[in-house]
C-alpha cells in the first residue's frame, strides 16, 4: 500500500520515491495523503513535507507551490525543496527579522511583506 511522491523544482526532479503516507504543508494547514485519495490540486504553503517511507520518516522544507494528487501519484511543484537537516535555524531567524523590517505603506507592499514573513516563519518552524 504505497503511494509515489514526486517533488519537482524548476532545476531538477528533487525526489521520486514510494511512501506509505505523505503529509503536505498546504496553504491553510497540513493535509495527509494515503493511497486511494480522490484527485486534487492544492496550493502549498511554506512548511514541512513529511514522508512515511519503509526506511523511516523523511522531512523536507518546501517553499510554496502546488500539489497534485492523481491516481497513486503525488506531484509536488515547488521552487525549492531542502531536507530539514540542512536548514540553518539561525539563518531562518535572520530571514524572519529581515522580513519584518520590510516597508508596508500601501496594500501591495503589505502583501509582499506578508508573503516574506510567512516564508520565513515556515523556515523557522521547519528548522527546529
Amino acid at each position: 500500500m504505497t503511494i509515489r511522491c514526486v517533488v519537482v523544482t524548476p532545476e531538477r526532479t528533487e525526489l521520486d520515491r514510494e511512501a506509505e503516507s505523505v503529509v503536505l504543508p498546504m496553504f491553510d494547514g497540513a493535509l495527509g495523503v494515503m493511497k486511494g485519495r480522490a484527485p486534487m490540486i492544492g496550493r502549498l504553503g511554506f512548511g514541512t513535507l513529511q514522508l512515511q517511507t519503509a526506511a523511516g520518516p523523511e522531512r523536507y522544507y518546501v517553499d510554496g507551490g502546488f500539489a497534485q494528487v492523481e491516481g497513486d501519484v503525488v506531484n509536488i511543484l515547488t521552487a525549492r525543496s531542502i531536507a530539514v537537516d540542512l536548514l540553518d535555524s539561525d539563518e531562518a531567524h535572520k530571514a524572519l527579522a529581515d522580513a519584518q523590517e520590510l516597508p508596508s505603506k500601501n496594500p501591495e507592499q503589505m502583501q509582499l511583506k506578508e508573503t516574506a514573513v510567512r516564508r520565513a516563519r515556515g523556515q523557522v518552524r521547519a528548522a527546529k
Binding site: 498546504m26 496553504f27 484527485p39 486534487m40 490540486i41 492544492g42 496550493r43 507551490g65 502546488f66 511543484l77
Partner: peptide, 17 residues
C-alpha cells in the same frame, strides 16, 4: 478535481509562478 483551498487561490499562485 478537488481544489484546495479554492480554484481562485490556486490561480493567484499559478500566475506569478
Amino acid at each position: 478535481y478537488e481544489f484546495l483551498p479554492s480554484a481562485e487561490s490556486i490561480l493567484e499562485e499559478v500566475v506569478p509562478t
